[in-house]
Amino acid sequence: MSTDEIELKALMLASLDGDAAAHRVLLGRLSNRLRAYFKGKLTRIGKAAADAEDLVQEAVLAIHLKRDTYDTHEPLTPWVHAIARYKLIDFLRRTRALRADVPIGEADEVMAHDDREAAESSYDLRRLMDRLSKNMRCAIMAVKLDGLSTAEAARRCGLSESGVKVNVHRGLRTLAALIAQGTAP
């Protein structure tokens, strides 16, 4: 087992327990690996590497939203690889390329290289947020952008505390769905 796997899994376990700092480091490190993975795949099948950043963000969002599907008894690398590959195939289908072009590949390849040359993706978070319901938008703005506590957010948005949590979660899921439908930005 690689040191990467051990370190990243430890970060994942901490982030599942609600450790925001671990989550930040985990998503940061994974995004560098995902960037290298997607750029490699896209150039190999003759697509523009410029789309890589969109895919990185889609995968990062998916990893965040679906983190409850990670089975902590299993290694992390195959889980990340499965998500990355799924998002790649989904992206290619959306952009009308053939699925047959993507070999299954080994799980390790998703962790093989780092690429820190982050470009901007084509997604505009603020504009995407305009398409959320008022409660979702208010809850996400308060909790995720302005960093308010749940109690403060509840007061600002006129929701209960659990209402804030539900609206943040649903809002993020809706954002991911908007991106995955290919209707973004």
Binding site: R24, L125, K144, G147, T150
Partner: peptide
């Protein structure tokens, strides 16, 4: 995006 997702985890 990472910062946004990690805040108030």
């Amino acid at each position: 995006l990472v910062e946004f997702l990690s805040r108030n985890l």
